[in-house]
Amino acid sequence: MARVYVTMVLDADIEQAWGVLRDFNGLPDYHPMFAESHIEDGRPADQVGCVRNFVDHEGGRIREELLALSDREYLCAYRILEAGMPVRNYVSQMRLWPVTESGQTFGEWWAEFDVDPADEAATVERVTETFRQAFQSVSARFSR
Rank of each mutant, 00 (worst) to 15 (best):
Q16K: 09
Q16D: 00
Q16W: 00
A17K: 08
W18F: 00
W18N: 02
W18H: 06
V20A: 08
V20R: 08
V20Y: 04
L21T: 04
R22F: 02
F24P: 00
F24A: 03
N25C: 09
G26S: 05
G26Q: 02
G26H: 03
G26Y: 04
L27F: 12
P28R: 08
D29W: 11
H31R: 00
H31D: 01
P32C: 00
M33E: 10
M33S: 14
F34I: 12
F34R: 01
F34E: 03
A35K: 14
E36W: 13
S37N: 00
H38L: 10
I39H: 03
E40Y: 07
D41V: 04
G42H: 02
R43G: 02
P44F: 10
P44E: 13
A45P: 00
A45F: 09
Q47W: 07
Q47H: 12
V48A: 09
V48R: 05
V48S: 05
V48P: 00
G49Y: 07
C50K: 05
C50P: 04
C50W: 02
C50R: 05
C50T: 10
N53G: 01
F54G: 07
F54P: 04
V55P: 01
E58P: 01
E58Y: 12
G60T: 15
R61H: 09
I62L: 13
R63V: 03
E64C: 04
E64T: 02
E65L: 03
E65H: 08
E65N: 08
L67G: 01
L67E: 07
L69P: 08
L69G: 06
D71L: 06
E73R: 15
Y74G: 01
C76V: 15
C76D: 06
A77T: 10
A77E: 14
A77W: 09
Y78A: 05
Y78S: 02
R79H: 05
R79C: 05
R79I: 01
I80A: 11
E82L: 05
E82M: 07
A83S: 15
G84C: 03
G84E: 06
M85S: 08
M85Y: 12
P86H: 03
V87L: 08
R88F: 09
R88V: 08
R88S: 12
N89W: 10
Y90K: 04
V91C: 07
V91W: 03
Q93F: 09
M94A: 10
R95C: 03
R95N: 05
R95K: 15
L96N: 08
W97G: 08
W97R: 15
W97F: 15
W97Q: 15
W97M: 13
V99E: 14
V99S: 11
E101S: 14
S102R: 12
T105Q: 01
F106M: 12
F106N: 13
G107S: 09
G107L: 08
E108V: 12
E108G: 14
W109P: 10
W109R: 11
W109V: 07
E112S: 11
E112W: 10
D114G: 13
V115M: 02
V115H: 07
D116K: 12
A118H: 07
A118D: 10
D119C: 04
E120W: 05
E120A: 14
A122R: 13
T123R: 04
R126C: 14
V127H: 07
T128S: 14
